[in-house]
Lab assay of single mutants.
Amino acid sequence: AFSSEQLARLKREFNENRYLTERRRQQLSSELGLNEAQIKIWFQNKRA
Rank of each mutant, 00 (worst) to 15 (best):
A1Y: 12
A37K: 10
R9N: 04
A8T: 09
S3Y: 03
L32N: 01
K11N: 15
A37V: 12
L7M: 06
Q38M: 14
Y19A: 05
A37W: 15
F43T: 00
Q26I: 09
S4T: 12
L10Y: 01
I39D: 00
L7G: 03
E5A: 13
S3G: 04
S3K: 04
A8D: 14
I41K: 12
R47Y: 09
G33K: 07
R25C: 15
A8F: 05
L28T: 01
R47E: 10
L32T: 09
K11A: 14
R9E: 07
F2H: 03
T21K: 03
S3D: 06
L32E: 01
Q44P: 02
N35R: 09
R12N: 08
R47M: 13
E13P: 01
E16G: 05
E5S: 09
R18K: 11
R9Q: 06
Q6K: 04
G33M: 06
K11L: 15
S30Q: 14
E31L: 06
K40D: 15
Q38R: 07
E16P: 01
R23I: 14
T21Q: 04
N35I: 06
N17R: 06
K46W: 11
S4E: 14
K46G: 06
N45S: 09
Q44G: 05
L34E: 00
A48I: 09
W42F: 06
F43N: 00
K40S: 15
F14R: 02
F14Y: 10
L34R: 01
S4P: 14
W42A: 02
Q6V: 12
L32R: 00
E13S: 04
A48P: 05
L32H: 01
A8E: 14
E22G: 09
R47F: 10
L20G: 01
S30W: 11
I41A: 12
Q6T: 07
E13M: 05
L34A: 04
S3M: 04
A8Q: 10
E16K: 14
L20C: 06
I41F: 09
Q6W: 03
R23C: 09
F14K: 02
Q6L: 05
A48G: 08
G33D: 07
R25Q: 12
K46R: 15
K11V: 15
N15S: 12
K40F: 15
W42D: 01
I39H: 00
Q44S: 09
L7S: 05
R47S: 08
S30K: 14
R9L: 07
Q44Y: 10
S29A: 15
T21A: 04
Y19V: 10
Q6A: 07
R9P: 01
Q26H: 10
G33S: 06
L10C: 02
L32D: 01
R25P: 04
K46I: 09
Y19G: 04
F43G: 00
Y19M: 06
E5M: 07
Q44C: 08
Q44V: 07
A37M: 15
I39F: 02
R9H: 07
S4Y: 11
W42H: 02
I41H: 09
R24E: 08
Y19K: 05
L32K: 00
E5R: 07
Q26F: 07
Q27I: 10
Q6C: 04
L34Q: 01
R24G: 05
W42Q: 00
L34I: 12
R47T: 09
N17G: 05
R25L: 15
R18T: 07
A37E: 15
A37T: 14
R24F: 06
F14Q: 02
R47A: 13
R23K: 13
A8Y: 06
R47P: 04
F2K: 02
S3H: 03
E16T: 11
S29R: 03
N35D: 14
F14V: 01
I39A: 00
R12P: 00
R23F: 11
R9W: 05
Q44E: 14
R23V: 14
K46M: 15
E16H: 09
Y19D: 07
K11G: 10
A1I: 11
R12C: 10
N45V: 09
L32C: 03
S29G: 06
F43V: 02
E16F: 08
G33H: 07
R23Q: 14
E36H: 05
F2T: 02
L28G: 00
K46V: 10
L28I: 06
E31V: 04
F14T: 01
F2R: 00
R23P: 09
N35M: 10
E16L: 13
E31Q: 06
S30N: 13
I39G: 00
A8S: 09
L34N: 01
S30A: 15
Y19H: 14
Q6H: 05
I41P: 00
N45I: 10
I39P: 00
N35T: 15
A48E: 13
A37S: 13
R25K: 10
R25H: 05
F2I: 11
R12L: 10
Q26M: 12
W42P: 00
R25Y: 13
N15E: 15
Q27R: 10
F14S: 02
Q38A: 12
A48Y: 08
F14W: 11
L28D: 00
L10R: 01
L34G: 01
S30Y: 13
A48L: 12
L32P: 00
K40Q: 15
Q44I: 09
